[in-house]
Amino acid sequence: MRRSHDAAPGVGAAAAPSGPVLRLCDIGFEAAAALLARYGLALHRVADGAPIPGSYWGEPEAGVIGATVHVRADTPVHSLLHEACHLIVLPAERRALVHTDASDSDAEEDATCYLQILLADRLPGVGRDRLMADMDAWGYSFRLGSTRAWFERDADDARHWLSVRGLAAPLDPAKAP
């Protein structure tokens, strides 16, 4: 998986796609904050128009610093979940050191994408189907051509990565024992 944008990270790279994607203002702050709190993360709301601290791709995408995910009302839900999942998959000692760039491997990036899809089912009004469509619209790219194809047919490594760390099975009813 790669997020494909034409510009360099942090330099207007996350221009809005042609179709609308769900943004934090569409689902509300409270449910997202409660979801992140279950994983020991804080969700910090940044004022409209203000820079988003720790944003790798630039506004309006979420940023990460330590155990905090920074968002604005116009932050896409997929970005909020993606950055939160980067922190969730990290051990506490690595999480504390994160500033802007949380991933250190392709395997970890894939696991992050898989987990964000699972967590979408935990947010009212989102769900995995909508999140996968938004990921495609925003420019995530996968070897099989779509987020759904990757998730359903090519994500065994990501599932395994999460499973050995105890992160996937409790969230995915189809994979639970």
Rank of each mutant, 00 (worst) to 15 (best):
K175L: 06
I27W: 07
L144D: 04
A8G: 00
D157Q: 05
G166N: 08
L171E: 11
G40T: 05
A149P: 01
T147M: 08
D48C: 01
V98G: 02
S55L: 10
L118V: 04
L162K: 08
E109W: 00
R94V: 02
P177A: 14
W138Q: 07
G40P: 11
R159T: 13
A84S: 10
E83G: 11
A168T: 08
L36N: 04
S18L: 12
R72W: 04
L35I: 05
I52K: 03
A16I: 06
H5A: 15
D172K: 02
A50C: 08
L81I: 09
E152N: 01
A62Q: 06
A33R: 12
L123A: 04
P20N: 06
E83K: 12
A158M: 07
V77F: 04
R2F: 01
I88E: 04
A155Q: 06
E152S: 07
D6H: 12
E61S: 12
A8P: 01
V71T: 08
E93K: 00
P124A: 07
P17F: 04
G125T: 06
R95N: 15
E152M: 02
H99V: 15
D74Y: 07
P20Q: 13
G166P: 09
A7V: 00
A92S: 12
R159V: 15
A33K: 14
R165N: 12
R153T: 13
G19V: 13
D101P: 00
S141M: 01
A169R: 15
A111I: 08
R122P: 02
G145T: 00
R94A: 14
H44P: 05
G58A: 13
D101L: 05
G139K: 05
S141H: 11
Y56S: 05
Y39W: 14
A102D: 15
A42K: 14
G139Y: 09
L41H: 09
D172C: 10
V98K: 07
R3M: 15
A96P: 01
V164L: 11
D172L: 06
A137C: 01
A133G: 11
L41R: 10
P76E: 05
A15Q: 15
A16R: 13
G54N: 03
D106P: 03
V77R: 01
L35T: 10
L118Q: 14
V98W: 14
A120I: 05
H78P: 00
V11Y: 14
A13T: 02
L97I: 10
V64H: 00
E59S: 15
L162N: 09
T100L: 04
A120S: 07
A16G: 03
P76G: 10
L41G: 04
H78S: 06
L80E: 05
R148T: 06
E83P: 05
P177G: 07
P76A: 12
F142H: 03
R165A: 01
L24E: 06
L22M: 14
S79C: 02
F142T: 00
L36R: 08
L24D: 06
Y114M: 03
H86K: 09
D6Y: 11
D48K: 00
D154W: 02
